[in-house]
Amino acid sequence: MARGQRFLAILRPLLLSLSLLPSAGCSKEGSSDQPLTVGFIYVGPRDDYGYNQAHAEGAAALAKLAGVKTREEENVPETVAVQKTLESMINLDGATVIFPTSFGYFDPHILKVAEKFPDKIFLHCGGLYDGSKHPSNVGSYFGYIDEAEYVSGIVAGMTTKSGKLGFIAAKPIPQVLRNINAFTLGARSVNPSVTTAVIFTGDWSMPVKEAEAANSLIDQGVDVLTAHVDSPKVIIELAERRGAFSTGYHTNQATLAPKGYLTGAEWNWSKVYTDYMTFIREGKPYPHLLRGGFKEGYIKISPYGPAVSEEAKKKAEEAKAKLTEGTLTIFQGPIMNNEGKVVIADSVAQQQTDIALESMDYLVAGALGSTR
């Protein structure tokens, strides 16, 4: 899927500027007494217990706002099909603001349609906007989900009985590696001997390979599974059937594993989308590059499951509070990779906005696997 392959491209434009830039069409869309039609486009089903469902939950929050109508289209591939869907939402549904949520929608599809409709607003999940070359009616948003992964790792590290965690991921790209490493660092902050076995499936939605990886890890003694794939549903359900614990990703999967689900790293897109609506409906400039973590309310953790001890909850909440306050840095040196090389020096603290994190190409010590 192009979304994964292009994540490497986010290195420079993401953090060059987080300033508020003028939004296109604000005077037209900004009156709060005018009905506003907002479109959402998903690459998969909106009830996938994963990436698409998280965005659909955000859309549902917007639908509750007075004066806002939402239109949704699911299972739209990252091809010219998304251009047709965008134009249909504009011409037939009257959409003036559209959130095309999949990473691969951006270039060339969103960019082409944005140029054809300069009075409409296109806000894309992924952070690829570059003000020096992209249309002014385009914006990008994303979040520091590794903060929630760190907290999930603490819970996993304090719950495991074998000391073996498992992480099933799509591809060894920076954003995925950042999550794996944050999860591992969180776990080892409370249980220094714990390990995280990592398996890459090769793509974002491969249920058969995900199930094979989950079974393999459990067979090797792993008793807590987590994932970074489009939908962790297969992995969470399999862990429950086999008596293993799990932590989730994207959205809450607790209903899939009532006994073994510990917590999870969730997006809170409803906060992002309602924030954008406030800017747009009031005719104010909106952020063309929007990022946030716990502090901004753009991410959250799933409620703790029945297997989580009071001590683990306390440790997790302490870490969450520090991350929210900005007094805890996940990638604080010294940090070594799993090949014994120092990747972050003793005196270095890489904060969330540090561009070095956007080119991460390693697994930290304690994470078992290869990025090659």
Rank of each mutant, 00 (worst) to 15 (best):
A114G: 08
F142M: 06
L165G: 02
V138T: 14
E147L: 02
S132G: 14
M158I: 07
D119C: 05
Y144V: 01
D119P: 09
H124S: 05
L128E: 07
G127E: 00
A156G: 11
G131H: 14
V155Y: 11
T160K: 06
F122V: 04
C125F: 03
G157L: 08
K120F: 06
G153N: 10
D146T: 05
G127A: 05
S132W: 11
S140T: 04
D146G: 01
G126H: 02
S140F: 05
G139Y: 09
G127N: 05
G131I: 09
D130W: 12
G131Q: 14
E147S: 06
V138I: 12
K161W: 07
G126Y: 02
G163C: 06
F142R: 02
E115C: 00
Y144G: 00
K133Q: 15
G131V: 10
G131N: 15
V113D: 12
K164A: 03
V151N: 09
I110V: 15
T159K: 12
S162M: 07
L128Y: 13
K116Q: 15
G163V: 02
G127M: 01
I154N: 10
E115S: 13
L123T: 00
V151Y: 13
H124T: 01
D146Q: 13
D130I: 06
S140K: 06
I154M: 11
K164T: 01
H124P: 03
V155S: 07
P135S: 14
D119W: 08
G127V: 04
G163K: 02
F117W: 13
G139R: 14
I145C: 00
Y129K: 06
V151A: 07
L165S: 00
S136V: 15
C125I: 00
L165T: 01
M158R: 14
E149Y: 15
G126M: 01
G163R: 06
Y141L: 04
V113T: 10
V151W: 10
G139E: 09
L165Q: 00
E147R: 08
G143W: 07
K116L: 15
P118Q: 13
I154A: 10
K116I: 09
L111C: 11
G143N: 08
F117N: 15
A114D: 05
V113N: 05
G143M: 14
C125Q: 04
G163D: 08
V113H: 04
Y150N: 03
N137C: 10
F122R: 08
G131S: 14
C125N: 13
I145W: 02
D146S: 08
H124I: 01
S136A: 13
I154P: 07
V138H: 11
A148D: 05
T159Y: 08
K164Y: 03
S140L: 04
Y144F: 14
G153F: 04
Y129I: 04
K116M: 12
A148G: 13
I121W: 11
L128M: 10
G127D: 00
E147G: 02
S140E: 08
I121R: 13
F122Y: 09
S162V: 09
V113E: 09
S152H: 11
Y144C: 01
E149M: 14
F142Y: 12
G157M: 11
S152Y: 12
F142H: 10
F117D: 00
G126C: 01
P118I: 07
K116F: 07
I154L: 11
A148F: 06
F142T: 08
G126A: 01
L165V: 00
K161Y: 06
A114P: 09
